[in-house]
């Protein structure tokens, strides 16, 4: 019964998402594109935070590198979009392997510091390596060609691009979801609750953390590859730590204990940002206050709090 209601709600949401370009203005098409991309970014972050228990403050490194990879391939090689995305994922995976190798060996305090520091290292590279990254201005002036797979899509059309993003995010989410529910995902949850017991069951916890970190980085890279053509620029801001703060906040906002939590968080975050920036510049201040309140009072996030409340009502 409960799962039937859930499936019905999910089907309704998906139908609504598909219908957005036909029922809403371009303004909302843009907003929903952003929600989906950032939702995927946050969901990839939650694989390491909510599931494995590793708090990274440098997840933007993979997001940003993904966006630079797609921008570079579009500028220099004009490959089909799908190929760009694969390059983004590959580049981010490689970076995640290096940063992860150095960071997952130590406890979570070190991990948080190191991911932040290495994230800022990537930012520094993008800033200083002008000949490739164009420094603080970032890479712009690229345009999307074909999609790939012989599909004839006008990617320059925001509605078409929205549907492409929706499709890719949906596929990526299903893959992520399966990983979360797999035996491997179960081990990740076990590691969060009690790493010691996992290693005394004969598993190298470090390896599992690293694999999770690389998977998360890869999907963040995919999200980055999607954001570059949407923003029409790949700039150092996408690599900055304030960008790393966004998935953290989205996951906490929606609920780190639920697969859909980061997506709910992303929706609330983007809508709130749009609303708040319409009358104040100090969006980050509001962000900080919300984060503090969520951490102190609503650690289970909106979804968790809602579900708890629903359980209470049913009693």
């Amino acid at each position: 019964m409960k799962s039937k209601i859930l499936m019905a709600i999910l089907a309704l949401v998906i139908a609504g998402l598909i219908a957005v370009p036909w029922i809403a203005s371009y303004f909302y098409v843009f907003i929903f594109t952003e929600i989906l991309i950032l939702g995927l970014f946050a969901a990839s972050f939650n694989l390491i935070f909510g599931y494995t228990g590793m708090l990274s403050f440098g997840h933007a490194a993979f997001f940003g590198v993904g966006s630079y990879a797609t921008a570079l391939v579009l500028i220099h090689l004009q490959w089909p979009f799908l190929a760009c995305l694969l390059v983004s994922m590959g580049a981010s995976a490689l970076l995640a392997l290096v940063i992860g190798f150095l960071s997952v060996r130590l406890n979570e305090v070190y991990f948080a510091m190191l991911t932040l520091a290495f994230g800022m290292m990537v930012f520094a590279i993008a800033y200083q390596w002008r000949s490739v990254t164009n420094g603080s201005d970032g890479l712009a002036g690229f345009s999307l060609g074909s999609f790939g797979l012989g599909l004839d899509l006008t990617l320059g059309n925001p509605s078409v691009y929205y549907h492409v993003v929706l499709g890719i995010v949906a596929i990526a989410s299903i893959v992520l979801y399966v990983i979360c529910r797999s035996s491997f995902g179960m081990i990740l949850k076990a590691i969060r609750q009690n790493p010691e017991r996992v290693s005394f069951a004969g598993l190298n916890v470090r390896t599992y953390r690293l694999v999770a970190f690389v998977i998360a980085g890869t999907f963040a890279g995919l999200a980055g590859g999607l954001i570059a053509p949407f923003l029409r620029v790949a700039s150092p801001e996408l690599l900055h730590w304030s960008m790393s703060a966004e998935p953290v906040l989205m996951a906490i906002l929606g609920g780190t204990g639920y697969f859909l939590g980061p997506f709910v968080g992303s929706a609330v975050f983007v809508l709130l940002e749009t609303w708040i920036t319409s009358f104040t510049e100090s969006w980050m201040l509001v962000l900080g206050i919300i984060l503090a309140l969520m951490v102190i009072f609503f650690r289970k996030g909106l979804l968790g709090t809602l579900i708890d409340w629903w359980m209470e009502v049913k009693k």
């Binding site: 708090l55 403050f57 979570e108 305090v109 948080a112 304030s242 703060a245 953290v248 906490i252 980050m284 201040l285 962000l287 900080g288 206050i289 984060l291 503090a292 951490v295 102190i296």
Partner: peptide, 10 residues
């Protein structure tokens, strides 16, 4: 870590 990060933003 999360809370001090929030304080940093503020």
């Amino acid at each position: 870590l999360l809370l001090t990060f929030a304080i940093l933003l503020i």
